[in-house]
């Protein structure tokens, strides 16, 4: 039988995939995609817990997370376009996310 914890495990795996993508890739669009993966991981958790607890709060939260994902993607791509206008590539070495 599939328990809630199974879904939570899938969610964790997804979170890690997203994190690895974000921390290792240089292509900004793919980094944005990694963020989508992370948000989907959150949603799997939320929906699974929603079923577990027998209320819809988690699903409502998930809807908001989707809204946030849309908004972030829109603004992120907007910035990307502005950047692209000033330079002709999106393989950006300067945007080294791990630099401190």
């Amino acid at each position: 039988m599939i328990s809630t914890m199974h879904y939570v495990a899938v969610s964790l795996a997804m979170l890690l995939i997203g994190t690895v993508g974000l921390l290792t890739r240089r292509n900004i669009v793919i980094i944005l995609m990694s963020i989508e993966l992370i948000l989907n991981a959150v949603n799997i958790n939320l929906v699974a817990f929603s079923k577990h607890h027998g209320n819809a709060a988690g699903q409502v939260f998930a809807i908001f997370v989707i809204a946030v994902a849309v908004a972030e993607a829109a603004v992120g791509l907007g910035i990307l376009l502005a950047l692209f206008r000033n330079r002709e590539t999106v393989q950006v070495d300067e945007i080294d996310l791990l630099k401190w």
Partner: peptide
Amino acid sequence: NEAALKYLLLGAFSSGILAYGFSILYGIAG
């Protein structure tokens, strides 16, 4: 541009991690 992009990428990432924590809190309490 680059500052905004870096901020957005890491900001969105941290929001995602935060939301993950929120989802766990929801899992704990319902």
